[in-house]
Write a protein that binds this DNA or RNA. Structure first.
Lengths: 125, 125, 125, 125
DNA sequence: GTGGTCTAGACCACC
DNA sequence: GTGGTCTAGACCACG
């Protein structure tokens, strides 16, 4: 798994890391039972504070993505693959809803929104 | 003009207010020369600090939407319709960027995202 | 004398008016003994508050450009023509000093400053 | 970096500070990545309110000179040298505009203004 | 520790 | 009355 953090991002460090771990799970790169690095190791790898990683793991545990056990480490939890596919769609749908809502409010046609989508999709893959 | 603010929102108060005023301008509800409420009146109407409204008006002035003059008040500035169209696009582009970023991260194809867009656009037309 | 006031200007109304009256005196359009309009007439002509004109006349009197006498009106005071020429230069020199000081600080050559001056001088006479 | 503020100046505190920081960046005294003092430290050093420094940093961030991140601090941002050159020009142009405006109003020829510029530029070389 | 937001007051210049 | 600036606090998220 490749985690990239940037101080140019709007998101705080902990959120950047969380998002990328979640994405790896949704993409299937991280599967049921996989062991995540220990807090200290991960922190030194990413060059961030252990507090930041502690928060990441704690957040992911609260959201049901991982399971931490003292003395053992942090593991990826089982997620049904159908649910997983649904989850991916849901994430996009949620964000797209806001776009469409705003577009309608500003009276921008679907064609125009589509153009923007196409342009953005072709940028720097 | 109807401004709704919520302490449940992610956005700080000043941003919530700014966004709604901008939306009103972009929609044409607020036009060239219209007088906005005085900072004190607006603050008491929305039940926020005068400094919060001061910040809203000051930000909007920096972005060229309004013009404030001591002793006179704060007015909506003329924006030529081309700039206005640009501004509307920019708002959508900003929001769409996040969608595309997430979609790419989750390896969702443009076709799939397009489907979601189409479905959402046809809802509650 | 033609006074133009604009709500687009950075300067407050009273300063815009003062500057133009002073300029008219320096240019020789207003001469020793000329009678300025009464406060009320002038205010209604320019469509500003009488308080604003009162301030203008009071400032100009303090700076020695005019003389007000109750019941008579406000008159332009005598200024020696040599002094007048000097005054014009002094005004420009004062402002130019700041330009040169800044240019030197930012290490901009005289040639470059000269270019800027030429461009600005050719704009909209 | 030496910041000098005066309550005699026409400019409000926040502007005086902003100008001097910008000048330091334009001169190269402050470079890409340099850390500015924390708002609290800076405020107590200059003996002004933290909100005044907050405004300074926030304005500089909006103008693209610095980047602030909660928990980390405020850093000088990279500006490519072309932009920097532009910025320097803009500063001079701004100031020169006022000179030219006044000169035109007083009917002083470009030649005369040029003379003044030359004299001032040769002083205290 | 850092910056980000917000409040409740105050004084000023301008109209 | 209007906006413009400033202070002295406070609480929050982040590292």
């Amino acid at each position: 798994m490749n985690i990239v953090i940037s101080n140019q991002s709007q998101d705080p460090l902990y959120l950047q890391i969380e998002k990328q771990i979640k994405a790896a799970i949704l993409k299937g790169e991280l599967k049921d039972g996989d062991l995540l690095p220990s807090i200290r190791v991960f922190a030194s790898e990413l060059n961030v504070s252990v507090l930041t990683i502690r928060r990441v793991y704690s957040d992911l545990e609260n959201e049901g993505f991982v399971m931490s056990q003292a003395g053992l480490g942090t593991y990826i939890k089982h997620v049904n693959s159908e649910l997983l596919q649904d989850a991916k769609y849901k994430v996009i749908e949620e964000k797209m809803k806001e776009v469409v809502e705003t577009a309608k409010m500003l009276e921008i046609s679907k064609q125009e929104v589509d153009e923007i989508l196409t342009i953005l999709y072709e940028e720097e893959q």
